[in-house]
């Protein structure tokens, strides 16, 4: 039998694997992020939160992981764009009557749109917090991230943008979490239902936790 050689990462399944792996890596970052966010609930004028933010901004290990995070994000987004273009080419003539929600969930078919919303949100989010923090570190100054939080989340339109970002994240995860395991080839009669229900609750809980921060600050519940 002839052996057709092809670069693994250029194959459809190689790309799927990369999407799944980078996706799960980005999920691990969300857990760290939401834990730091939760520090505001000590309600101590941001002392705990700022201490955690200071650690994240100065710890060398975190600095290295941050670079990995950006690489992961870029890989995930660029790959998704390439796959989407390829998939559009695979059906040049569309159906007059689309399938709708009969055989699949709307959010499973809308990962590109949800991901694009997330990316747009990230631009705003990084401009709000990441850039000022970096500027402070670069100029060797202390940065009061908590004060920044209060300022941003006192504006209703920022709270609105954050809600859109967080809800997009929730639906993106709702499909993406369990989908990543399938892409890695992990599908099992016993464990897949567990992964699916874990992914479901994980997506909902992380969405609520992220959403709670701008809302409680906007309402002035955090002193």
């Amino acid at each position: 039998m002839s052996t057709t050689s092809g670069k693994f990462l250029q194959s459809s399944l190689g790309k799927k694997l990369l999407m799944g792996l980078t996706g799960l890596f980005l999920v691990s970052f969300l857990i760290v992020h939401v834990s730091i966010n939760a520090c505001i609930y000590f309600n101590d004028g941001g002392a705990t939160f700022n201490a955690a933010a200071h650690f994240m901004a100065h710890n060398p290990v975190i600095r290295v992981v941050e670079i990995g995070l950006f690489i992961g994000l870029i890989l995930h987004a660029v790959q998704a764009l390439m796959l989407t273009m390829q998939n559009n080419k695979a059906r040049p003539v569309k159906y007059a009557v689309p399938a709708g929600n009969v055989s699949s969930k709307w959010y499973s078919r809308s990962m590109g749109i949800l991901g694009s919303l997330l990316l747009l949100f990230l631009v705003v989010h990084l401009a709000n917090f990441w850039v000022p923090t970096k500027q402070a570190v670069f100029n060797d100054m202390e940065h009061d991230t908590f004060a920044g939080l209060k300022e941003v989340f006192s504006k209703w339109y920022f709270v609105g943008v954050y809600m859109v970002g967080v809800i997009s994240l929730g639906y993106h995860l709702l499909h993406g979490f369990q989908s990543a395991f399938q892409s890695l080839g992990l599908n099992h009669k016993k464990y897949t239902p567990m992964i699916k229900s874990f992914g479901f609750w994980f997506s909902i809980i992380i969405t609520l936790l992220f959403a709670s921060m701008p809302i409680t600050m906007f309402l002035g519940l955090i002193k």
């Binding site: 039998m1 459809s12 969930k105 499973s108 078919r109």
Partner: peptide
């Protein structure tokens, strides 16, 4: 032919211009 089968059939599938799987599950339904 287990190893070469997986590699060659997937390579041909890609070459034919089929799209990529995004795990929507519509095919199974």
């Amino acid at each position: 032919e287990r190893t070469s089968r997986a590699k060659n059939m997937v390579a041909q599938m890609d070459e034919e211009g089929f799209g990529n799987c995004t795990n929507t599950g519509a095919c199974e339904v």
